[in-house]
Design a protein around this nucleic acid. Structure first.
Length: 632
RNA sequence: GCCUCGAUGGCUCAGCCUGGUAGAGCGGCUGCCUCGUAAGCAGCAGGCCGCGGGAUCAAAGCCCGCUCGAGGCUCCA
């Protein structure tokens, strides 16, 4: 007996004419069945009734997995060249039908002995197509693999990706005292975020039902939106969002300049066939945007590494100048992530990432530099608005590296002050000896990496980057790769997710003051006070504070409601009282209350809170009534 | 790439099962109201019901295909 079992969206068949004289009676009508498992069945020489039970039992096991309970038994002679006698075949088929029905399966059957035409739509999942064959002496099944339809297509998978499958990694928790505890024995008491993150990394569980909260927020707050006219993951930024992103760009660039990074700019596209690039690139064939220009094949960069490495290759430097630090703000880095995994601001195909490389003489220098950058990353994130409670760290290294650099790793763990998820390999496969990343855990318990730094022990050689040592000899440096903030879009994602979480716990959701598009909203009680309000606005603007005026004709209550919904941190209603007394009643979002103060006091208070941060003027007209609406 | 679900004014969504005139709220526009800390009132405009095909006297609705989106699977240097 041979059965081809197909999980189908639908099948339509129509008996055309009788093929043999013992054919069953049937009308020549079209039959359509949906959501059904179709069993194309051929009965072979020597098959017995016992086989029909065995076959149906197997089918029943599959129905459970497929969550379907309807089958169509479809006599199909073409599966075998060793068919049994038609009369016996019909009896076995009827037997199958009866046994299936007796087992509670909703069973249909196509007529035996007819030439039938059919159309079938087969589902695409791995279990949808199964073939079995049964011999009567020993009831064996040759399932799945024996079928030629079976797709064993080898997708072009890079060596690195393949290795990840087979690579054994051992998960530990790195405690603040530098000790590694196997994760099985670790008590996560009070560390639920770390536990969630560990689960995410190790088990790769991704059970989620709703849209991530930051997506509706980014739209409603007119920060960013999908751009259907582009490719998925290429985002459109509205004025408010563009301003926020520009401020982040300025801030991170400033911090890296202070650290000593020399800002450069390199091309966004590279020649696929460039000798230094191709060996690196060929490890990740499926990930690039590829474009053709005349007879050249180019790819869009996925990080700043290429440009900076090619630049470093041509540059001349010695141990005296090291570490040499190059920095670029990549706008953009492109990664052609699979369509199903691109989400909101969390995972994009085009994103903005600060990328700072430090070329170091040896491991001692690299370690020293690494610590400085670790502090820098944590501080940058904190200033952006993400504190240690908001994220967890994952660190990856080999057993040997840990043994040889215990103090160094302990130092990092102590600095962080919270346990760290550690992935330990027996052998180094990747190009780095040590890597860590900061991971934000969002409202769906999904993790997204922000800041990261790595010690790269391979690429200097690959790109032939050298420095001159004390003896005048050429040496390969170690390269640190660091993004102190991670992708800036992702920072905004994290801020929005964090705000949503605040809202859920009863705190007012808001953006950090220095990133808020409107920092202060002035609301005149009536048109009469508009002139005076404009004077206030001018005074506040003079101190580099973004202030706007709601001059619309709505009621006072409505204007306040709208300002609150825009997450405006300070709302000031101005009427006769304020103008006469000079005392403003400032509605402070953060504290959910109103505070009286003079305009000077107010300006000082705000200025203190945003000192040290870059400033950009209001991204929209000062008068609310003059603003277009970018999102319904 | 696969699975599931979805696509209806600018936005959010109802209507679809059971075919027969396309609905609401928000937003927009116009007018009234000039207001004391989270939604004032009234009127008006605005829709190729994603695209293509099929069955039907008749399709937003039923059937098929396609496109796009969301979530999941897979994957994530």
């Amino acid at each position: 007996m041979r059965i081809l079992q197909l999980h189908s969206n639908f099948i339509v068949y129509k008996p055309v004419e009788k093929e043999i004289n013992i054919a069953e009676e049937s009308k020549k009508e079209e039959t359509r069945l949906e959501e059904i498992v179709v069993l194309f069945t051929a009965i072979e020489e020597g098959d017995s009734d016992a086989l029909s039970k065995k076959a149906i039992d197997d089918v029943r096991a599959f129905l459970g997995k497929l969550k379907v309970n309807r089958i169509l038994i479809y006599p199909f002679a073409h599966l075998s060249s060793n068919l049994s006698q038609p009369s016996l075949a019909l009896s076995i088929i009827k037997d199958m039908e009866g046994y299936a029905k007796a087992n509670g399966i909703e069973t249909f059957r196509a007529p035996f002995g007819w030439n039938k035409q059919f159309t079938i739509s087969i589902k695409g999942h791995p279990l949808a197509e199964q073939a079995r064959s049964y011999a009567s002496n020993q009831v064996t099944t040759a399932s799945q693999a024996s079928l030629p339809i079976e797709s064993n297509k080898e997708a072009p998978v890079s060596a690195a990706l393949k290795a990840e499958d087979t690579l054994k990694s051992y998960w530990h928790i790195l405690q603040t005292d530098g000790l590694l505890v196997p994760i099985e024995g670790y008590k996560f008491k009070g560390k639920s975020n770390l536990q969630k993150f560990s689960q995410y990394e190790i088990k790769k569980t991704r059970a989620v039902t709703q849209m991530p909260p930051h997506v509706p927020l980014m739209k409603r707050l007119e920060i960013a939106d999908y751009e259907p006219g582009s490719d998925p993951g290429n985002i459109r930024w509205y004025p408010k969002g563009r301003m926020m992103k520009a401020l982040l760009e300025q801030y991170v660039s400033m911090r890296i300049a202070q650290y000593g990074g020399m800002e450069v700019e390199t091309p966004i596209m590279y020649d696929f066939n460039h000798p230094s690039l191709s060996s690196y690139l060929n490890r990740f064939p499926a990930r690039q945007y590829v474009l053709k220009s005349e007879d050249k094949e180019l790819f869009l960069r996925f990080a700043a590494c290429f440009g900076q490495f090619l630049m470093a290759h041509d540059a001349q430097f010695s141990y005296k100048q090291m570490p040499v630090k190059l920095y670029e703000l990549t706008r953009y880095s492109f990664r052609r992530e699979k369509s199903g995994e691109v989400v909101g601001l969390k995972r994009l195909r085009a994103f903005t990432m600060p990328d700072c490389h430090a070329f170091c003489t040896d491991l001692e220098q690299a370690k020293k530099e690494f610590i400085i950058r670790f502090d820098l990353c944590i501080d940058v994130l904190e200033n952006i608005g993400l504190i240690k409670d908001d994220y967890e760290i994952a660190m990856r290294f080999t057993k040997d590296f840990y043994t040889e650099n215990k103090d160094f790793i302990k130092n990092l763990a102590q600095k962080f002050g919270k346990p760290i998820l550690a992935e330990v390999w027996n052998e180094r496969f990747f190009y780095f000896a040590l890597k860590w990343d900061i991971n934000f855990v969002d409202n769906q318990n999904k993790a997204a990496a922000l800041s990261t730094d790595q010690i790269d022990v391979e690429n200097a050689k690959r790109y032939d980057i050298t420095y001159v040592d004390e003896k005048g000899e050429k040496q390969y440096p170690l390269i640190l790769h660091c993004s102190p903030s991670g992708a800036l879009e992702r920072d905004i994602y994290a801020l929005l997710e964090k705000a949503y979480r605040d809202q859920m716990t009863g705190k007012p959701p808001m953006l950090p003051l220095w990133l808020s598009p409107t920092q202060v909203r002035l609301i005149p009680i009536s048109d009469k006070f508009l002139n005076k309000v404009e004077e206030f606005a001018q005074q506040i603007t003079n101190h580099c504070i973004r202030v706007d005026i709601d001059d619309s004709s709505a009621t006072l209550q409505k204007k306040i409601r709208e300002a609150e919904q825009e997450w405006v941190p300070y709302i000031i209603v101005v009427g006769e009282k304020e103008i006469e007394s000079g005392m403003l009643s400032v509605r402070v979002r953060e504290e959910k209350k109103q505070e009286p103060m003079t305009i000077q006091q107010f300006i000082i208070k705000i200025s203190e809170k945003i000192s040290g941060k870059p400033f950009k003027p209001l991204p929209l007209p000062m008068y609310v009534s003059k603003r277009p609406q970018f999102h319904g």
